[in-house]
Nucleic acid binder design. Structure first.
Ligand SMILES: [Mn+2]
Ligand SMILES: [Mn+2]
Ligand SMILES: [Zn+2]
Ligand SMILES: [Zn+2]
Lengths: 145, 145
DNA sequence: TTTGAAATTGATCATTATTTTCATTTCTCA
DNA sequence: TGAGAAATGAAAATAATGATCAATTTCAAA
């Protein structure tokens, strides 16, 4: 639920002694309303339609805050643009990324996750985050160039 | 074997109609002699000890060629520095990365790999490359801050 | 061995994503 | 409502990487 994410972020802002502003509200609402994996530029484009005076730097700063608060997660796919998506708490997934059309498929596989933990444990390693990305050709692009 | 990698690269250079040069030789030998996951800067530092006149750009260019040839692979961990390591043909592994001391543990898990393929197949996706990275605390860093 | 076209090199400049600065504006709340 | 703290946006600063280009090197043909 969008409102819950907004409240969650508000709580984080409050706890850090920061302030609520119109720009932040516009950015957060636009972000939460959007699906997919947004670059800073993507989001800035969208926010400008709502509030043309929002600056690029503020989008950067707000996305950073959203990540810190747990409302958003940063993704670093292999295209040199950090992307953000919003997740429900405790939610997690990994990605299949088409190197032809750019389509991104999300998946979650408990068996893989549990084997990952097993590997980590074998090395005495405590995992905080992980990412599993597979690059290749999606179904649609498979029969082409 | 280092010599085999050198030959492999020579063959690639030849096939592309490129030339053998002292700089490339120095860079390649230094790279193959080194273990670990080297940044461009790391490698440049090392090469300069062998041949001080080697420029930064040439290290970039040569690492690119090494990757194309299959002798090296590029890694994009979450620190903004592309790193390179050399692998034997057909070799593959993934990484556990300590966010405290920076140590990198390599692992290979056929079970995980096979589950990955299964997930991809389920989505009609043909995987070309993948990367699985787990960030956290290594055994040594676990009992500290 | 000489030669010259093609490739390479290194210094420097260009680019691009992201961060920082800082003067100005906006919030918060006593 | 007014002061102090935080936020903003425009522009400058960073930092990794890529592109340019004149000078140098390689190599196969002569
Ligand atoms: Mn996703
Ligand atoms: Mn490795
Ligand atoms: Zn596709
Ligand atoms: Zn460690």
């Amino acid at each position: 639920m969008v409102q819950e994410r907004i409240n969650e972020f508000a709580k984080y802002i409050e706890k850090k002694g920061l302030k609520t502003t119109q720009q932040r509200n516009d950015i957060i609402r636009t972000f939460l309303k959007s699906g997919g994996h947004l670059s800073v530029d993507d989001l800035h484009q969208k926010v400008k339609k709502v509030n043309p005076r929002v600056g690029y730097a503020t989008v950067y700063r707000t996305l950073k805050l959203l990540s810190e608060s747990g409302v958003a997660v940063e993704r670093h796919f292999d295209d040199g643009h950090t992307r953000y998506e919003h997740l429900e708490p405790e939610e997690h997934h990994d990605h299949l990324i088409c190197i032809k059309c750019g389509d991104i498929i999300e998946f979650e596989d408990k068996n893989i996750e549990s084997l990952q933990e097993k590997v980590a444990k074998k090395h005495g390693f405590r995992v905080v985050t992980h990412n599993l990305e597979m690059y290749g050709y999606c179904k649609k692009c498979n029969g082409n160039t």
